[in-house]
């Protein structure tokens, strides 16, 4: 029962957050809508019983990454996106039609997905399990990801640095 309520509340809020991201002209409002969406996805992870990922979602996405986005938006002091001259141009129409076709196609494909019957107490996504996997089966990707993160860090400094060409 509680799972059902959690799922529907989070699903509706998540989709509303996504739509808010796309339709808001002010980038700060768009970023706040995206934060709503991230919290809803954390709730969906909870209803899927992936507690670790729910916590990481709130900490890393809603916390760290979105603060970074808001920081940059406010640093650049952006104005609202201006209205288009034409309300409906061909690129926009094509985007909406393709998006609609895509979603219909996805729903038809997912209609045929059959879930496995799992026991009620099936352990899934527990923090203990993830910690063990991280140090055994996934130890190589775990090391590689640290290299990726340090490369991103150095790359960001190099790209955003101000150079004086004289």
């Amino acid at each position: 029962m509680i799972e059902t309520v959690l799922f529907w509340v989070c699903a509706i809020l998540g989709i509303a957050g996504g739509i808010g991201l796309v339709i808001n002209r002010n980038p700060v409002y768009a970023a706040l809508s995206l934060i709503l969406n991230f919290f809803s996805i954390a709730g969906l992870y909870l209803s899927l019983r992936a507690e670790f990922l729910a916590v990481i979602q709130v900490l890393v996405y809603a916390g760290a990454i979105m603060v970074l986005f808001l920081f940059v938006i406010m640093l650049l002091n952006l104005s609202d996106e201006p209205k288009r001259e034409k309300t409906f141009d061909i690129a926009r129409g094509a985007a909406f039609i393709l998006g609609f076709a895509f979603i219909i196609e996805m729903l038809i494909i997912f209609r045929n997905a059959t879930p496995k019957e799992l026991p009620e107490d099936f352990s899934f996504g527990k923090t203990e399990m993830i910690g063990k996997l991280l140090m055994t089966d996934y130890v190589f990707p775990f090391e590689v990801i640290s290299v990726v993160l340090i490369a991103a860090l150095l790359g960001a400094v190099v790209v955003a640095k101000k150079y004086d060409y004289k």
């Binding site: 799972e3 989709i15 996504g18 940059v72 952006l78 996106e81 393709l98 998006g99 997905a113 879930p115």
Partner: peptide
Amino acid sequence: TPNLFLYLAVGAVMFTIGTVGVLTRRNAIV
């Protein structure tokens, strides 16, 4: 009751909203 199809549908709807946003918005941060 939430099931496999409903979760996948929510994921698909969010993905499509993101795609339409990428194709229609002009602000690089958005």
